[in-house]
Simulated scan of single mutants.
Amino acid sequence: MEFTRLGRTGLTVSRLCLGTMNFGVHTEEADAHRIMDTASELGINLFDTADIYGWPAQRGLTETIIGNWLAQGGGRRERTVIATKLYMDMGDGPNEGRLSALHIRRAVDASLKRLQTDHIDLYQMHHVDRDTPWEEIWQAMEVLVAQGKIVYVGSSNFAGWHLAQAQETARARNFLGLASEQSLYNLLERKLELEVIPAVQRYGIGLMPWSPLHSGLLGGVLRKEREGVRRTVARAAAALAAKRDAIQAYEDLAAEIGHEPGDIALAWLLAQPAVTAPVVGPRTLDHLRTSVRALELTLEPKVLTRLDEIFPGYRPAPEEYAW
């Protein structure tokens, strides 16, 4: 396993992050425990979850599954950097979601109980809260750090402007601010290159891309359709229809260079300077083991150029749309 620092912090994390959104929804608890054991054995030490995971059936279920795994002992907690998120509504009351100081206080205690641990290593805001001032958010997070309930703070799905707001307000308070940002980023979805990536690089924020295979569209979807092993539905089907020619060219390139499409998609992310660790969300052990192969793949410059031709990216703003 390869390791790196999380942004400008001293925290060492694996180059792949284990995403757990499927646990309890598509993956039974026993299978989830086996996936976490195997991930730990492979050297993946960064596990990502959220208090809302387990919905629609049971909000908080995924954290509970992880907590039951940690409670087995054997060094599981000591080896693992636990990252979870808050923001989404966890109940029907008016203060059971978003980022008020009151909800932050209640949410962290609830997550700690479900996770069966005394602290969260990386506490992430799942979405920006435009109605809560940053002074309130940072004061609440500072209290949690002082209490030892969290170690680092992260964000998810923030725009570049939100990252700047957060960091400048934290700087004025002599607080570390954000250690990480988790965003949608892959070969098919590169809007982050406009403003988010320049922001995370400027502020020393680690980038954890979610959906690195874009709901499986970068994992050999056309070949699997031909083989009758995959049926694309909902938003993924619409995206496939819009990008079918590009995805076919991508799969042709993968066949030409002799690597699986999914491995190439992950290797491309790992080659991006701003990326700390893509978040892989396996439903099965085979999915996990497949993800790790990308760590052994180094894409040649000519392949990276071909990928940019198939899936054009963006220059940083404002040059992309001005001069």
Rank of each mutant, 00 (worst) to 15 (best):
M208G: 00
P198R: 12
A146M: 11
E320M: 03
T232I: 15
A101Y: 00
L270I: 11
V221W: 10
L307G: 06
G216D: 08
K243P: 00
V151T: 15
R202F: 12
G43D: 12
D118C: 04
P273H: 12
R77D: 10
R173A: 13
A166T: 01
A71Y: 03
D286Q: 14
D37M: 09
L184P: 00
A107W: 07
I66S: 05
R79V: 02
K302R: 13
K149T: 12
D286T: 13
K113G: 09
D131M: 07
T9G: 03
E189M: 13
T27E: 05
N45H: 07
E78D: 15
G262D: 12
S211V: 01
A39K: 10
H127E: 06
D51R: 13
A166G: 03
P278A: 11
E296W: 01
L240P: 02
I205T: 07
R76L: 07
K302L: 01
A294D: 03
Q165C: 02
G97Q: 03
F158K: 05
D51A: 13
E320H: 09
M90N: 04
T290H: 13
A101E: 08
M1H: 07
V13W: 08
K224W: 05
L42V: 11
R223E: 14
I197F: 14
H33N: 11
P212R: 14
A242D: 10
L218I: 06
L115F: 09
A110V: 10
E193P: 00
L253K: 06
E2M: 11
G154P: 06
T298L: 09
P316T: 09
E63A: 04
A166Q: 01
P318C: 11
R77G: 05
P278Y: 04
F158Y: 15
P273S: 10
I257M: 09
H103R: 08
L304Q: 12
D37A: 07
R235L: 12
D51G: 14
G73F: 09
M90H: 15
L11N: 00
L99H: 02
F23Q: 07
L176R: 05
E142P: 02
M21G: 00
K191W: 02
R130P: 01
H119C: 13
R8S: 15
I197W: 09
R79L: 02
A271V: 06
Q248I: 00
D286E: 15
N45F: 05
G281M: 06
R173H: 08
A179P: 00
K113F: 08
A317W: 12
